[in-house]
Structure formats: C-alpha cells, structure tokens
Design a protein around this nucleic acid. Sequence first.
DNA 1: GACTGCGTGACACCCGGATGACCACCACGT
DNA 2: ACGTGGTGGTCATCCGGGTGTCACGCAGTC
Lengths: 242, 242
Amino acid sequence: MADLLLLTPVPGGSAQVLPALGLLSHRVRVLPVEPSALVDAPDSDIVVLDARRDLVTARTTCRLLRATGLTVPLVLVLTEGGLTVVTAEWGVDDIVLESAGPAEVETRFRLVMERAATSSYDDAPQEISSGELTIDAGGYTARLRGRPLDLTYKEFELLKYLVQHPGRVFTRAQLLQEVWGYDYYGGTRTVDVHVRRLRAKLGPEHEQLIGTVRNVGYRFDPPKDRRGAVDDRDQVHEPADA
Amino acid sequence: MADLLLLTPVPGGSAQVLPALGLLSHRVRVLPVEPSALVDAPDSDIVVLDARRDLVTARTTCRLLRATGLTVPLVLVLTEGGLTVVTAEWGVDDIVLESAGPAEVETRFRLVMERAATSSYDDAPQEISSGELTIDAGGYTARLRGRPLDLTYKEFELLKYLVQHPGRVFTRAQLLQEVWGYDYYGGTRTVDVHVRRLRAKLGPEHEQLIGTVRNVGYRFDPPKDRRGAVDDRDQVHEPADA
DNA sequence: GACTGCGTGACACCCGGATGACCACCACGT
DNA sequence: ACGTGGTGGTCATCCGGGTGTCACGCAGTC
C-alpha cells in the first residue's frame, strides 16, 4: 500500500490510464499535468506520469520534476508507440506499458520504491545534533563544538538515548531498561557512575547538559540561548514534584 | 546494435528465453549460468539473466556479479510468477517479462545502457582516494603514499568497502554480508583476522586508518586534516584527563 | 540533627579484541 | 599427475580496558 500521485491529462479515473492500477490497493491521487500539481509530488511515494498522449509535455514535466530536486520515484505510462521516444535523459526511474498486468505494475512500483529507500539510507549520515553537540549514530562518534569525544560503548549509547529525547526525565530503571536492554534489578547506581563519566568527558563547561532531577533520574537539557537567562539555577526548577 | 551476454540454464537458443530477442538485431552470446561465465560479463554491453526457472540461483548470480564490482547493466528475464520474489537488494537494473514485445525489450535495454553510460561518465572514477590512500577498483591495486600495497583479494575487497563508506561503523555481520557476499553465520572472528592483516600491510604508522569500535565493529577513519582546524582553543586538552 | 540521595574515587572482574599459530584448500608451475 | 606457495578460515591464548560494584563524603530535605 503506497501513496501514488497520478498525473494525467485525461479527466477520467486512474483506470483509464493504467487499467492494472484498479486491481491494486494503493491510494491514488489523480491530478492534471500542470505546474501547480507538481508541488504535491514530494508527499507521495511514487509519481506516475501519463505519457500516452502528449510525449512533449511529458518530457518537459519530467525535467521540471527533476529540476525541483524531487527524490520521489518517477514512473512513466507509455503506449507501444511511445517507447522509442523516451531516453535516459528524461530522468524517469521506470516505464510501464498501459497494457501491463497488475503483477508487473506492482513489482515495478515496489522496486523503484525499494531502490529509493536504500539509496537514501546509504548516504544518510544518521546524525542528530542539539546545540553544539553532534551525535553520529552511523559512525559511533560524538562531537562537542567539533571536538570529538572519546566515548566508550555504553557512554555513547547512554548519551545517544538521552539526546534523542531532549528535556525528558528518565528514571534509572528506565535507562537500564532502554540502554542496557535487559531487565536489571538492583544496582541502579550503575547509571550514576556512567552519567558521571559522561559529564567528565563533556568537560566542566558542558557537564550541565545532563541534568539531575532529585528523586527521579536524569535528563538531557538542550542548550538554550543563555543571553537573557541570568539565574538559570532557579529557572530549571519547574514542576518536578510528583 | 549491442553486445548482449545471455546467461541461461536452458540449452536452447535465445529465442527460448526471450522470444522478442529474436526480432531484434543484437549480438547475443549465450552461456550457462556458471561462475566461469561471469568473467565474460565485463566485455558485454548488457548482461541478461534468465530467472524464469531457478530464482534462487538467479539471486546468488546477481549478488556474485555485483560483488565483482560489475558496472555492466544487469537485466532479469522473469515469468509472471517470479515477479513477486525480486527485490531491489538483488541489484538488477531492470526486469523484463518473457512475454514482452520487441519494442519494449529494445527500449528497456536502451534505457539501461544510456543510464549506465551517463552514470559512469559522471561519477565513476573507478578510483577512490582518501588522504594518502588510493584505491583503484579497476586494477585491483591500492597505494599508500604512492607505494603499492600487496593486498590479497579479500583484503582488497574489505579495504575497498570500508573506504567507500568512510567514517561509518560496520558490524562483523554486516561486513561478512557485504564483503564476503554470502549469508554467513558463526565465525565472525574471521573479520578480525582480515582487519589485522590489513593493518599489518598498511604499516604501523597507518594502521590507525581502520578503527575499532568496541562491541560494534570496524570503521575506516579518514585521515583528518590538521590544517583547517577551526579553533585551537579547546582541542589541546582533548583527552578527558584519565 | 538524622536521614536520604547523589557525587566521587577506587578497585576487581571479565568480556572483547588482538595476536600467533595451524591447517584446509585452491591456483599455480613443473 | 604431483609438488608448492599463497590465500583464507578457525582455534587457543593473552591482555587491556570497559564495566559494574562498593565505600565514603557531602548536600539537600524533613
């Protein structure tokens, strides 16, 4: 089940363009081939362009879509006669004959979506950052103001988990559950020690990034602009009574 | 007119596999699906793999071809029933039903060749460089400061894969999957030994290029440029005491 | 003022990676 | 055919550092 955007000059439904589509269970939005329709393209999983009638318009539409830096796969619907015209320069990811059966259409759509997913997965640096702190989950490295922190495995996992949920307080039991993974009773002081080692490696001026909430646990305090806040000690005080 | 390499388990001619091929004017070489036939693949413009009967063999053949760094387009011939099995992970460039007409086959072949031509023209230098390390994928040679490293096949493949994804950590299982290619359970220590041999050949002063991430895996650490260090204020005290 | 909860330093265990050695196997050349 | 060198996979062992635990001190709380 995917979200398709079908661009066609034909007013009729999708069955007019690609009969096989009617036999598949996808959410299909049908729009005319107009520049105004292109803004909706990024919201879809696949853009299907009807190039049966007007090959010239189809070609310019392809180029327009590509010019906007569209990352969504683009599939062309063609007649037998239109086959000879299409070139790689159009930038389409796949082509489908209007007479294609549902199994073939389904497979082609699936393949182009998979390819798009894996390619974007490959290049993604997989990093999250908060303020001056940057965490690269793919490379298992953390940097503070660009300076790499030499963290151990557990320290990195702990910091990553906290940064992934900024501002939220976690009890020691929760952290043991989520970061350590296994059910763990007794010895919750283990978390304390790891937090302490983390703070030490963050340096004296940044150890405040990990805050302590008495009787509750720890939390990552996303760095805020310190310009207006003079008395930060009290402003953090907030509602912790429970 | 192109040079096709048709891999098929069926002894008969190409017309048995893909009838439309008989109506097109391409030079077709037919070989059985065997590892020995794969060495001929780079000489062709397209490799066409018959996946109508044996989908399992077809899958492993695809992976084998991709593992050798094949740049030639790979097209699969399928039956209707085989459509659901293929995934993007196979690494094929296009698929064709055995019942496809000559016009469609011709267009798909042409598109796939055009794409290969433009992509290899654009961004496939066959040569990867990172710092003082240069890897020539085409010639299976690696140089460090211009000095050629005498690497074995697996060592080269491992180094190439790591360098292709600089800064990223790979688990032993991932490396076995990607570099060794086949599904592999148990004996992940194999990776350790190969990394060790690689480091030994890189020399004591460069063995740091392959970093170890405890509890996770290995990573290629691109040599850092000391020149462009933005700030010198903090980086001096980087090790968090002890 | 007693108690609770967290920070701090120190320490011992043990896991995980490094290391060296061994052997099966394949591709060579003779 | 055989012998040979090189490659690749596995095993046993060593060692270092990461991790967990404890004791102690201090600060906050009732």
